[in-house]
Design a protein around this nucleic acid. Structure first.
Lengths: 232, 232
DNA sequence: CGTTGCTTTGATGCCCGTCAATGATTGTGG
DNA sequence: CCACAATCATTGACGGGCATCAAAGCAACG
């Protein structure tokens, strides 16, 4: 549990990088007009479980982890978010999890009250917000299957395949793994040792390569897919 | 995997039981005007994973389970829904899970297109729909913690406490358990044997009583809460 | 009253957690 | 630039919690 709070959060006038805009054909671009750019340093907390949910965010760059903590310190990571993802769009009074910057993060911050108003005025915005929530729910339910019914090996492989999917990495390609092994373990409901051992196993089986801590190459995507489906 | 499809779904003009209406001060009562009452028999499928999401439902009576199935038959139950709960309100083209009637079920069915229109017209309806989605997401994330980080005993106790919470059962009271042991196991990510053994353990510890299959009395709520939190 | 489906209990083993030590990498100050 | 510390990752030994396999108990129903 390391800390490093550069209590930053600089505020700037806004302009979404064009690379993000085409990603959604929807009404979320209307949000550009009411957001503020903010920055967070590695390991900085963006908001905490129980905080008043005054702001929502859209990530421009960097990676964020969403954590739930138990009273005795056990941790479960609900999701990792990357560029383009939305954060804190739940329609609740307080946040239900802690959001932490895994790397340095740049995001657009929205005042929730403004979002609410915009939703009232524009149907496309409203539908986009619903779509974001629905997507998060969909992701959480798939995550449930993983935690409830998959073996350690299946979980690790599924995780790697999901990273590959996100980044559009093909067979033989290399994925970036910005999160540490402990974060992966806390996402998969495993221990760090089991994650390490499983990765080493996959390496020994020549299904992946591990050039360094933050990169993994997918040597045999076919077989990895089989493992994820339980066919092995 | 038993089957029993009385392919019912009778349709009647609508009138929500007054007991349900006060539960929400919100705009969902406006939905009453556009819904149809439908019925499902025990073990009947309401909709399946991948189906076109043409309808949404609100439960009037009975219990529903939301299941995700893996290709090899492993099953994870994402949620149990009871009277007053909403079903299929995700803003996606197709349903992401299968909904099955655990008991005989009466529900109000809405055409999604109509819901959509109503959301456009009424801000209170829109906010209510967002609230439903947000609540489901919140529940799924708590479920993640359970599956990822709690022991079998903690999961079973948490489950019983959640049932007690829903029904407003106090210390010493008795909860109704409409789902079978296998359903509980599939919800908790355990086997039926582990669920049975854990319940037997709790009974031996005199924390609960088990008068019959569908009832459990909470003899020592205090201690149960400690177990759920990991203090034991 | 036998059948059918569900639940409970028992015996056994393995997967993964725990504890511990070593290696690798990064950052810091001399 | 190197020495050292700090952090993270990896590997090993071992045990326990839960899954698996198997059989017996129990309740509802025709």
């Amino acid at each position: 549990m390391s800390i490093a709070v550069r209590s930053v959060s600089s505020a700037e006038p806004i302009a979404l990088p064009p690379s993000l805009q085409p990603k959604l054909d929807d009404g979320l671009n209307a949000l550009s007009a009411i957001g503020t750019v903010v920055r967070f340093g590695r390991n900085e907390t963006i908001f905490s479980d129980g905080d008043d949910a005054s702001y929502s965010y859209r990530l421009i760059s960097g990676t964020v982890r969403l954590c739930k903590l138990m009273s005795d310190g056990r941790r479960q990571i609900a999701e990792f978010l990357g560029a383009g993802n939305f954060l804190g769009f739940e329609w609740l009074e307080t946040h239900a999890f802690t959001a932490e910057a895994l790397t340095d993060v740049v995001a657009v911050r929205y005042v929730r009250r403004h979002l609410d108003r915009l939703g009232d005025e524009r149907g496309d915005v409203r539908r986009s917000l619903m779509a974001v929530l629905s997507h998060d729910l969909w992701a959480a339910q798939n995550h449930l299957v993983m935690l409830g019914r998959q073996s350690a090996r299946e979980r690790v492989v599924s995780f790697l395949l999901a990273l590959a999917e996100r980044s559009g990495t093909k067979d033989g390609g290399t994925i970036e793994v910005p999160m540490g092994r402990q974060d992966i373990a806390d996402y998969l409901g495993l221990t760090i040792e089991t994650v390490c051992r499983t990765i080493s196993d996959l390496k020994r089986m020549r299904l992946i390569g591990v050039p360094n801590r933050t990169q993994i190459s997918l040597t045999n995507l076919e077989k990895l897919r089989e493992i994820a489906e339980g066919d092995l």
